[in-house]
Simulated assay, not measured.
Amino acid sequence: MTQVDKAESGPDSLTADGEGTRPAGRSGPGPWKRGPVLSACALLLGLLLLLHRQLTDWAGMGSLVETFLPWFGLFAAVLLAGTLWRRSASSAVALLLPVTVWLNHFGGLLGDKSHQAGDLTVVSHNVAAENRDPAGTARDLAASGADLLALEELTAQAKGTYEKELAKAYPHHVVQDTVGLWSKLPLSGTRPVDPPWGTAGSPAARPRHDGIPVDPLRALRTTVATEKGPLVVYVAHLGSVRLMPRGGFWTDSRDSDATKLAKAVAADHSARRLLLGDFNGTLDDRALNGLTSQLRSVQDVAGDGFGFSWPAKFPVARIDHILVRGVEPKSAWLLPATGSDHRPVAAGINW
């Protein structure tokens, strides 16, 4: 072979057996062999989204994952960027699993499903015990024009302020422990869902799990007299959750309250039921299965986006909910932030 022949038989030429040699500058595995780590991560992410209910709840791990489940879609976006950078065909195919599962679970929340205002407008708000401006919060809530206002985390000091500021717009109201309902319509048959423990609910009488006092179920049941018939309303504030240095995500108090509330709702055979409150958990959390199996979320049916309500400055989770049965959700939205660390949630419902 001459010198010219050698030059012409460069990196793009065919070998004797008819196969081409790899072009210069394109060394390494092909697109189907690139990014094995990306592919593995995509498959693991997809399985996590698909089988999160099977994840162990040891140290509250399952509840913690389910609280922030929508945000796992960001990991898919990161993996997609890595896939494009590596030009990996295998990881692109693997990404179809988490993307499909995420869209199937949360895709319905991406659009605006709200319609016209309903026959009845309801608002639920954890007003926060640390709220420095309860009067301003009360005025903001009254300005919403809601027919029903459910308030959680009322303190003894702030209760009088809310009663005074809301008296003109809401002539009817009931309070049990730290939850209350203000209404433009008459109320009757009010009672606590779970009677307080101890003689006066003193901290010394509170049951404890792992040395931590368990919050009581702060919830009431009342009946609203509407033009179209009675509407049973529950207002609830489930127990707190905590991130413990040694115990992980502590949910005993919240889980216990959720079970009690679910049993109370199941035993209630009223045709129209409405549940408002701070659940200290998202509806993806397994601890709330007893409630979500009986009631529908207005946000899922008629909301605009995810409706994250906490924390108010940069919401990352919807832990404040409005659930219904026997009525039709028409719209669901968030109200502007108040002096609380929660955003108020609102909904319009029809018979």
Score class of each variant (00 low, 15 high):
138 A>E: 03
139 R>P: 01
139 R>M: 04
139 R>T: 09
140 D>V: 03
140 D>N: 10
140 D>T: 11
141 L>G: 05
141 L>A: 07
141 L>H: 08
142 A>G: 13
142 A>S: 15
142 A>C: 10
142 A>L: 11
142 A>E: 10
142 A>V: 14
142 A>Y: 11
143 A>Q: 13
143 A>I: 06
143 A>N: 14
143 A>H: 09
144 S>V: 11
144 S>H: 12
145 G>K: 08
145 G>D: 11
145 G>S: 10
145 G>E: 11
145 G>P: 11
145 G>T: 09
146 A>C: 12
146 A>W: 13
146 A>V: 12
146 A>Q: 11
146 A>F: 12
147 D>N: 13
147 D>I: 06
147 D>M: 05
147 D>P: 07
148 L>T: 07
148 L>S: 06
148 L>H: 06
148 L>K: 05
149 L>Y: 03
150 A>N: 04
151 L>R: 00
151 L>P: 03
151 L>Q: 02
151 L>N: 02
151 L>Y: 04
151 L>A: 03
152 E>H: 10
152 E>V: 14
152 E>S: 15
152 E>C: 13
152 E>M: 14
153 E>N: 06
153 E>W: 04
153 E>M: 05
153 E>V: 06
154 L>W: 03
154 L>M: 09
155 T>V: 07
155 T>P: 05
155 T>L: 04
156 A>P: 00
156 A>G: 03
157 Q>H: 13
158 A>L: 00
158 A>G: 01
158 A>C: 01
158 A>T: 08
159 K>V: 12
159 K>Q: 15
159 K>F: 11
159 K>N: 13
159 K>W: 12
160 G>H: 05
161 T>V: 15
162 Y>S: 05
162 Y>H: 07
162 Y>P: 04
162 Y>I: 07
163 E>Y: 01
163 E>D: 15
164 K>C: 01
164 K>H: 14
164 K>D: 14
165 E>H: 01
165 E>L: 02
166 L>N: 03
167 A>T: 11
167 A>M: 04
167 A>D: 14
167 A>R: 14
167 A>L: 08
167 A>H: 13
167 A>G: 02
169 A>I: 08
169 A>Q: 15
169 A>D: 15
170 Y>P: 00
170 Y>K: 00
170 Y>L: 02
171 P>I: 05
171 P>D: 07
171 P>L: 04
172 H>K: 03
172 H>C: 02
172 H>Q: 08
172 H>P: 01
172 H>Y: 15
173 H>P: 00
173 H>K: 02
173 H>L: 01
173 H>E: 04
174 V>I: 06
174 V>A: 04
174 V>G: 00
174 V>L: 00
